[in-house]
Structures are given as C-alpha cells and as structure tokens.
Simulated scan of single mutants.
Amino acid sequence: MNVLDCIVIGGGPSGLSASLILGRARRKIMLFDDDTNRNTMTQESHGFITRDGIKPQEFKELGLKELEKYPSVSFAHATVTEIIKDKGNEKFFVKASNGQEYVTEKIILATGIQEVFSIQGIREFYGKSLFSCPYCDGWEQRDKPLVVIAEKEKHALHLTKVIYNWSEDLVVLTNGITLSPEGAAELQRRNIKIISDPIKNLIGEDGYLQKIEFETGETLLRSGGFVAPIYYRTNQFAEKLGCELDEDGKVKTDGVGRTSEKNIYIAGETERNRPSSLMISAAKGNKAAVSVNTDLTMERF
C-alpha cells in the first residue's frame, strides 16, 4: 500500500487551503470531504477579498478545480470513519466510508464544527434571515428591525453591542433567562428592549422571519436577527488521537497547526471549536500545511 505524505480531512476553506499549499509543495496527499460543511445553508459568504458574496458551494468548487492542476493531490468524496495510529505516531491507518484504507505519515484535521439551537424553529430561518456572525451578514441587515436571541448573558451583551454598529433597532430575547441588573442597564442605556419570556414559535415564510410568538401569547414583529448557537466538533478525532485540549475545549497548538501529538496537525474551526471567517480559516490551513511541509523537509533532508 502506498504511503501518503499527508491526509487532509475536511474540504472547507482551511482544508482546501492546506491542500493547495501541499500540492504546490509536490507532496502526495489525499483530501477528504463529505459535503457536511457548516455553511451549506448560507446564501452568500462575505469578507473574503475578491470573493465577497460568493455562494459557499461555488467557493468549494473553485477550490477543488484549482487543486486539479497538482497531480500529487487526490480527492475523495467520502467520510473518514476511523484513524488508527501506530507506535510513536510514525504512520496512521485511515479508513473511509468509500471502503478504502489509506496509510499516511501526517494528518491535518480540518473537519469544522456544527451548531446546536435550543429553540425549535431557528434552523428554518438560519442562513436567510437569522445569522450568527455580524461580520458575515451585518451589512445586509443594516438599519433593519432585528432581534438578538441569546440564552447566556455574556453572549447577549457581546452580540448586541457588536450588532448595534449595523442597526440600533434591536430587541434582545433571552428565552426565559433574566439578565443581571448591571447587564440589563447596559442595554437599556441604548434604549434596547429586553424580553425574557420563553419563546414559543418563530413565524415567517420561506426562511424569512416575520414575527416571534412567546409563551405568554404576546408577539414581536421582526424581519431578522442574530443568534448565539452552541458549537461542537463533528467528530472526536482530536480527542481519540490524544491531542491536548485546554479548559475551553480548544486544541492546544504551537500557533501554526502542530498539536501536542506528533504528526497530527489541525486547522480552522476544528482547532478553536468556535466559528471563524473564510479568510481566517483559509489562513489557518495555509499555516498548518507549511508546518507539515517544513517537518517533512527536515525529517527527510
């Protein structure tokens, strides 16, 4: 069985970027992706210079097309199901949903994260009229009557303060949680209304929010807004492979993708267990790939 230089797991911006750098470095790699990217419901991606407003699927297709120029890069539309490391992490045996098995010297984990919403119905509007990132979607929501849905005070305060830059017509919903007097006062100084009543239903058509209904029977008219989801890694590869995590669940690295485990690298949202922009994720993939290539070079020279 041929041994790959590196397997990159995840074809989002970090995985695509890493694959491009390694392909240009003439490394024999395999990129895996199974189309479960977090931004699949996003209508447009913003903030990536020269690609502002691009659809995420188009972004991915352009990236995959560019990789075709490099003969040492292979792509598998499949899910990695198992990674087995040998003694000393010198090689990794990788099994995939396509029934194939691979051997590689190094691995880049770039599988991203996913959201969890505690309020039923949010996903129906997510990506069209409800969003999580003001820097990605704040411009399109400027000056509109917006809602901020957050069930932790620190999230409610931070998100509201940031969004206020784009729209001052804000109502904060905490879904049954009462803000501290100090926290409430911060928002009220800006004439921002706070509703702590539990949310019963979100009402709208074709993904576009119109109003929110509360358990009290009251309703609130809003055209869109921002939410604070809970995020989680889509798999436990980092943990199972022994990568060290900090108290917040972030994978510890040297700052350029190397984890605490030899020959295991990480990039993008997978590392932080928090959302990130296309630009930052791509940069993280670039850094991780340079680390991989540097280590291969020094080990073999």
Rank of each mutant, 00 (worst) to 15 (best):
C243D: 01
T160I: 07
S45A: 08
I195P: 13
Q210I: 03
N98F: 13
P275A: 00
A238Q: 09
G88K: 12
R189W: 02
A96R: 15
K95T: 12
S74Y: 10
I177A: 11
W166E: 05
D295F: 13
R189E: 05
K95P: 15
P71C: 03
I203N: 11
D137S: 09
M30V: 12
L64F: 08
F131H: 09
G285K: 06
R274L: 00
Q188H: 03
E68N: 12
E61P: 11
I54P: 09
I108C: 02
K287W: 01
Q114M: 10
G257D: 04
W139P: 14
K144D: 09
N98E: 12
D33M: 01
A289T: 04
R190A: 08
D169N: 09
K250R: 12
G99N: 13
P181K: 07
C243W: 06
T42D: 02
V171F: 09
G88E: 08
D295R: 15
W166S: 07
T160P: 15
R26P: 14
N191L: 01
V171G: 04
K91N: 14
E105K: 15
I177H: 13
D34K: 15
F93H: 12
E299W: 11
A110M: 06
I195K: 14
V251D: 01
D34E: 10
C6S: 13
L220S: 05
H155I: 00
L202E: 06
R24L: 04
K60Q: 09
L170P: 04
C133S: 08
N263D: 03
I163D: 02
K106M: 03
M279G: 06
I113P: 08
I203A: 05
F92R: 09
A25Y: 15
Q188S: 01
G47Q: 11
N165M: 09
T174E: 05
M30E: 06
E153Q: 10
G268F: 04
T297Q: 10
S17Q: 11
T40V: 01
Y231W: 09
V116T: 14
A267V: 00
I195H: 11
E271H: 10
S281L: 00
Q57W: 06
R190C: 03
K144E: 08
F125Y: 10
E186F: 05
S180P: 09
V147H: 14
K152P: 12
L202I: 04
M298A: 02
N39F: 00
I29L: 10
G268L: 02
P229G: 07
A76W: 12
A150W: 11
G127C: 07
S97Y: 13
K144P: 13
G249P: 08
K240L: 07
